[in-house]
Simulated assay, not measured.
Amino acid sequence: MTIVILSRGNCGLSKCITRYMVAMAVADLLVIIFDVIFYEINGMYFSYTFLDYTPVCSLNIALVFIAIDCSVWLTVAFTFDRFIAICCTKLRESYCSARTATTVIAILFGFSLMENIPIYFENEHQEIIDNVTWFCSVKSNLSNLPIWVAYFFFDITLTPLVPFVLIVVLNALTIRHIIRASGIRRGLRGNNNNEDHRDSEIENRRKSIILLLAISSSFILLWMITFVHFICTQFSSIQFMLTDYNDPFAIMEHTGYMLQCLSSCTNTFIYAVSQAKFREEVKVLLCIR
């Protein structure tokens, strides 16, 4: 529903912002399909289905990582786009366009696809029944290969460490610029004795920062535990994918994974809360009068 509403272009948003939001909605939907439904729900409630064939299982895991990377980096791209639009007036017209947004989205998708191709080859079958391979698990000898260790470190650093830092820094710079510019603007308006007149520019900035902070803050909060767990693994002997659920770090890891999946479901509600026109379009789509 979110994809349909945003694609109609009636929410009062620029084409640039709309394309980023549609792309984020598509990526989030893919995370829910491949990770939550095809991987988690299928693994818990069903067994020996088509999804459990080893090649299909390996493909689904690779698609999970591709979808997650797209979702995360599209959030970074959207944050960077808003940073350029608000803080860099000279680059705004050339960068903040629908064409640039489409190019950035295509590049991020292609990079996520290429970067996660090795994930497909990291798995092996768990069972063979009637010459058919079932299920998949990480090959035991991979942890001894230096190139694979390097790839794993590169992959986990790329998501979520780098996006987390970029979003925090870009948001801090954007907020500082808005506060400074709004203060100067109010001062100039005060000198002109127009205090009672509603400033549309400040209102537009306020709406932009609300949407930006809502999406970025949601990402930061819901990825925080995964980020902290990643930092802990770099400075201790903690391992990933622990199965001892009495271990506090295992609880931390799986809680972070749960919240990470939840982050793919929150943007729709953020749009509904922060965008009045989006709520109106929901009513129109559902034929509510």
Rank of each mutant, 00 (worst) to 15 (best):
I128P: 05
A272L: 14
S140I: 04
N116R: 02
E122F: 11
R8D: 06
K15I: 05
M44W: 10
D155N: 09
V104F: 09
R185V: 05
V165R: 07
D247M: 03
L29P: 00
S112P: 04
C287I: 10
H177S: 14
I175L: 15
K90H: 06
L259R: 01
L142P: 04
I178Y: 14
A101W: 03
E124V: 07
T243I: 09
I32K: 02
D130Q: 13
R180L: 08
A272Q: 04
I32Y: 06
P55F: 08
L158G: 05
T2I: 10
I119Y: 00
A214E: 01
R279Q: 03
D28H: 11
V282E: 11
E280Q: 03
F121W: 14
E195P: 00
Q126E: 15
L158Y: 13
T49F: 04
P163R: 06
N60Y: 01
A27E: 02
I32L: 10
S264P: 01
C88Y: 06
I156V: 14
T157G: 11
R180C: 07
D130M: 06
E281Q: 15
S200H: 12
R176D: 11
S71C: 09
E201Y: 10
E124I: 14
L59A: 12
L166F: 13
A181E: 13
A181L: 06
P163A: 06
D130I: 06
N10M: 11
R185F: 04
I17R: 07
I220L: 15
N116S: 01
A62E: 01
V165S: 07
A62F: 04
V76F: 01
L145I: 12
M258R: 04
E195S: 07
F80P: 02
C88Q: 09
V149G: 00
I84C: 07
C70P: 01
F152V: 12
F111C: 12
L166D: 01
C88E: 04
I5M: 09
A272W: 09
V56Y: 02
V64F: 02
N204P: 01
L286C: 09
T100C: 12
L242W: 01
F154W: 13
V168T: 12
I117G: 00
I147F: 09
R205N: 14
Q260H: 04
